[in-house]
Simulated assay, not measured.
Amino acid sequence: MLLARDPGISVVAEAADERQAVKRVAEYRPDVILLEAGLTELIQELDRSVPSPPATVVYGIDAMSPERLADLVRGNVRGVVHRDAANDDVVHAVHAVVDDGGFASPELTACLLQAVRAGCTPLGVDHRFRELLTERENGVLALLCQGLSNKAIAAALCVTEKTVKFHVSNVLGKSGVSTRAQLIAAMGSFTTPHGHSIGARGA
């Protein structure tokens, strides 16, 4: 019901169990799958059963080890939404994934950073890639690492969402990862060449 109220989202199918979900995905070929946190094993089944499975948003995440969360974002999961997040975060996550980005609730960024500190997210991002970024791209990176959506970044920088999408795409391309969640996990907390601290809220 929440997604169906959004004019930019079409709910094409629902599934009552794992087997039905695989069937629905194969039949309707959705752009995004919204999956409850207790059903994440379905992700591997979809990888085995469906050619080019759609991106996944996992919602309702609460108790999860940093290792498990890192495993999710290394796979086809492009959005992770905490159990206590606002309902709008689910909608924002779906839009972000459709826009070729990603979404991580601020409540989960600390867990992602723990995975980095524990060495369980070897995504291979060289922090020196920031030297390749323009000043505006570094500004977008700072806000992106706070878990902000494209819309929120656009409001903060007084630019259009289309401009933000362009900059986010450039940042991800130069970093070598494909999603926001992966970038947050890989970057951790660090200091930019200009001396501004970049980190994730909740860390």
Rank of each mutant, 00 (worst) to 15 (best):
A200H: 07
N138R: 15
H167E: 14
L39Y: 12
H92G: 12
E137A: 02
R68N: 04
V77N: 07
A104D: 07
A16E: 09
H167T: 12
C111V: 15
T56Y: 02
F166V: 07
V73C: 08
P30C: 01
S65T: 15
F190M: 07
S65W: 06
A13C: 03
G202F: 03
G8N: 08
E135W: 06
L72D: 09
L148S: 12
T191D: 09
N87T: 11
S49I: 00
V140I: 15
T40R: 13
V73W: 11
E107T: 04
S49Q: 13
E67L: 10
I43Y: 11
S175K: 06
G173W: 10
R5I: 01
V32A: 01
Q114V: 09
G202E: 03
A186M: 02
V125S: 04
P122C: 04
P193I: 04
E27T: 00
V81I: 14
Y59M: 12
L144P: 06
P7H: 05
S178L: 09
G124A: 02
A181C: 05
A21Y: 06
R74Q: 15
G8E: 09
C158P: 04
M1E: 10
L42A: 08
K174I: 04
A21E: 08
R117S: 10
L72P: 09
R5Q: 14
A203D: 01
N138K: 14
E137R: 00
R78C: 10
G79Q: 10
L143T: 09
A156M: 14
V58A: 00
D31L: 08
Q20I: 05
A154Y: 06
K165Q: 12
I61T: 06
K174Y: 07
S105F: 09
G8M: 04
A203L: 01
D126Y: 01
I198V: 15
L157N: 06
F190Y: 13
L42Y: 07
R19H: 08
G75F: 03
S105N: 06
E41F: 11
V25I: 06
H95T: 05
V32K: 05
K151C: 02
Q146S: 14
V97F: 00
R29K: 10
L123H: 07
F190E: 01
S10H: 09
F190G: 00
V168R: 15
G38R: 14
E14I: 13
C145L: 15
G176Y: 02
D62C: 02
N138I: 09
E67Y: 10
A155M: 11
L108H: 02
L108Y: 01
I9P: 13
L113T: 14
D84Q: 14
V58H: 02
D84V: 10
P30W: 11
G75K: 01
L46T: 03
I61V: 15
A55G: 12
G79C: 10
A115Q: 11
F166M: 07
E27H: 05
S169F: 05
